[in-house]
Computed example of a mutant assay.
Amino acid sequence: MNWQDYIVSDNQVLLGKPTIKGTRISVELVLELFSAGWTEKQILESYPTVTAESLRAVFSYLKECIQQELYFPISSAKF
């Protein structure tokens, strides 16, 4: 999947946060919804401009970010 077809960043939209192309729905919002327990079906029904392909693109984008080490390191817990 070519996530660049679905994920864009524009300084004029949500302060440049990555969003689903043609929407104001950020990658961050999609992740928040999934982490809150929303299903793909719930997201697609609630946000009709989002497609199943654009949701997959969110994860493709994140995978590439992690591969390029564009993430915050997690410090190991000390017991």
Rank of each mutant, 00 (worst) to 15 (best):
S54N: 11
E53P: 12
I43V: 14
A57M: 06
L62R: 02
E53Q: 04
Q68W: 03
Y47F: 14
I66R: 04
I43D: 03
Q68D: 08
A57N: 09
P48H: 05
S60Q: 07
L70R: 01
L55Y: 11
S60K: 09
T49I: 14
L44M: 13
Y47C: 13
I66Y: 07
C65N: 08
E64T: 02
I43H: 13
Q42R: 11
I43R: 06
Y61I: 10
E69M: 07
E45V: 14
S46F: 15
L55I: 14
C65M: 11
E64R: 00
I43A: 07
P48T: 04
V50T: 09
K41M: 12
E69D: 02
Q42Y: 10
T49Q: 08
T51L: 12
Q67T: 06
K41V: 12
V50S: 03
A52N: 14
L62C: 08
E45G: 07
K63F: 07
K63C: 07
V50F: 03
S46T: 15
S60H: 04
T51A: 13
P48S: 13
P48Y: 08
S46Q: 02
S46P: 14
L44S: 01
P48G: 06
Q42T: 11
S54A: 14
Q42W: 12
T51Q: 06
S54D: 08
Q68F: 02
K41P: 11
L55M: 09
S54C: 14
I43E: 03
F59D: 07
Q42E: 13
T49N: 06
E69P: 05
E64H: 00
S60T: 14
L70Y: 07
A57Y: 12
E45S: 11
T49G: 01
S60M: 11
Y47K: 09
L70F: 01
L70G: 04
L55A: 12
T49W: 03
V50P: 03
